[in-house]
Simulated assay, not measured.
Amino acid sequence: MTHFHETPEQQRLRASVAELAGRYGLEYFVAKAKSGEDTTEVWEEAARAGFLGVNIPEEYGGGGAGLYELQIVAEEFAAGGVPLLFLPVSAAMCATFIARAGTEEQKKRWLPGFADGSARMTFGVTDPAGGSNLHRIAATARRDGGDWVLSGRKSLVSAVDLCDAMMVIARTGDATTGKLRPALFIVDRDTPGLSYEKKPMVFTAATGQFDVTMDEVRLPASALVGGEDGSALRALFAGALNPERITFAAWSAGLGRYAVDLAVRHARERRVWNTTIGAHQGLSHPLAMAKINLELARTFVQKAAWLYDNGQDISGEVANMAKYAAGEAAIKAVDQAVQIHGGYGLDEEHLVGFLYPMVRVAHLAPVSREMLLNFVAEHTLGLEKSY
C-alpha cells in the first residue's frame, strides 16, 4: 500500500541533507567548478553522516534503506545548491548493481567503501560510435586463460580522475556477429592499458567528463560482475540504469526547486514600478506553473523509487517516465527563474544562470528525452518501434 506522506525517518533524512547542503550552497559549488576542483568537503561530510550509503545493506556498513532514501539525498543536495552530479553514478548505479548482482567478494570489497565515502566508482557505458544504442557496443572482452582482456573506448565517463575503479560494459564473443552478449567488469583505474583524457565541456560542473581507452586491459576472472550468459543486460537495467534514472530525476527536481526559490526571492524583493515584480501575473503565473509541474514530477519520482524498492517496476517504465517528467519540469523552472531575473539572470553575481547548463544535462543524460519517449511509445503504448 502506498502512502502520500514520508515516515519520520525519511523526513529527518530530508531535513539533515538540506541543512548540510545549505551550509555550502551554489556559490561554493560554482567556485569549485570554475577552479576545476572537486566538492570533496561536501562528499566527505555526506559520507560521515551516512548519506552516501543510505541504500547499502547494513551488513556492508550502509543504512539499510532503499532507493527512495537515496533519491531524497540527491534531491535535497540539488535543492540546496550543491547538485552532486556524481551521486547517481556511484551510489545509484555502481553500488546498487554490485549489491544486486555482485559476488560476495565484490560486495565485501566495494560496498563498505561506498558507504563510508572512501571508495568511488564510475560507469562506462557509451561507446563513441554507438551513443544510446547499446546494441552497437564495440568494446570487447575476450577470454585468455583464466583472465579477461578488454579493448575499446568509452566516451563521456564521469569523474574518472576521482574514482578508484570503473565499471565497464563490453561485448563478449564475436563482436562482428551483431548479437549482443554484454558483460560488465570492474576495472581499477591504475590497471595497465587503461588511459583516460578529460573532455572539455561547455557547462560548469565540479565533475569532469572523460574519454577512456582500453588497450588490451587484462583483468582477473573475479572482475566480471553479473555473469556472461547474456543476462547482464537485463541485470544492468534492473540493477543500475533504472536506479540511476530515478536518482537523476530527483537531482533534476532539486535543481528546479532551487531555481524557483531564487526566482521567488528576487520577485519579492525587486521593484521596478510601484509594486514588486512578483505582483505581475506575467511573472507570477509562469512561476506558479513551474512550481506545480515540479511537484507533479517529484510525486512521480517518489512513486518510481517506492515501486523499485518494493520490486514492482520490472520493465523500467516508471523510471523512464520519472526521468522525463523531472527533466521537463526542471528545465522550464530554471528558464523561468532566469527570465524573472531579467539581465541579472545571466550575470555571475546572481548565480541563477549557472543552473542553465546543469539542468540542460537532464535532457541528455543518462538517456535523452527522445529515447525516453521512444521507450514509452513502444513499451507502454504498444506502438511500432521506430528505431
Score class of each variant (00 low, 15 high):
Pro8His: 00
Gln10Pro: 14
Arg12Gln: 12
Arg12His: 04
Leu13Glu: 00
Leu26Thr: 09
Ala33Val: 12
Val42Ala: 04
Ala46Gly: 15
Pro57Gln: 02
Glu59Ile: 15
Gly64Gln: 11
Ala65Tyr: 04
Tyr68Lys: 15
Leu85Lys: 06
Pro88Met: 09
Glu104Gly: 12
Glu105Gly: 05
Lys107Thr: 12
Gly113Gln: 11
Ala115His: 09
Thr122Trp: 07
Val125Thr: 14
Pro128His: 04
Thr140Ala: 06
Arg143Tyr: 04
Asp144Thr: 13
Gly152Glu: 00
Arg153Ser: 02
Asp164Gln: 11
Asp164Val: 07
Gly178Glu: 03
Lys179Leu: 13
Lys179Phe: 06
Arg181Ser: 13
Phe185Met: 01
Val187Asp: 00
Asp188Gln: 01
Tyr196Val: 08
Phe203Ile: 12
Phe203Tyr: 15
Ala205Trp: 02
Ala205His: 07
Val212Asn: 04
Val217Ala: 01
Pro220Asn: 01
Ala223Ile: 10
Glu228Pro: 05
Ser231His: 01
Ala232Met: 07
Gly239Gln: 07
Arg245His: 15
Val260Ser: 08
Asp261Cys: 11
Arg265Tyr: 00
Glu269Ile: 00
Arg271Asp: 11
Trp273Gly: 09
Thr275Leu: 15
Thr276Gly: 06
Ile277Thr: 06
Glu295Val: 07
Ala297Gln: 08
Thr299Arg: 08
Thr299Ser: 12
Lys303Asn: 09
Ala304Arg: 05
Ala319Gln: 02
Ala322Lys: 06
Ala322Glu: 03
Lys323Arg: 13
Lys323Thr: 11
Glu328Gly: 09
Ala330Tyr: 01
Lys332Ile: 11
Asp335His: 04
Gln336Arg: 10
Gln336Ser: 11
His341Asp: 01
Leu346Gly: 07
Glu348Tyr: 06
His350Cys: 07
Gly353Tyr: 07
Tyr356Glu: 06
Ser368Lys: 09
Ala377Ser: 15
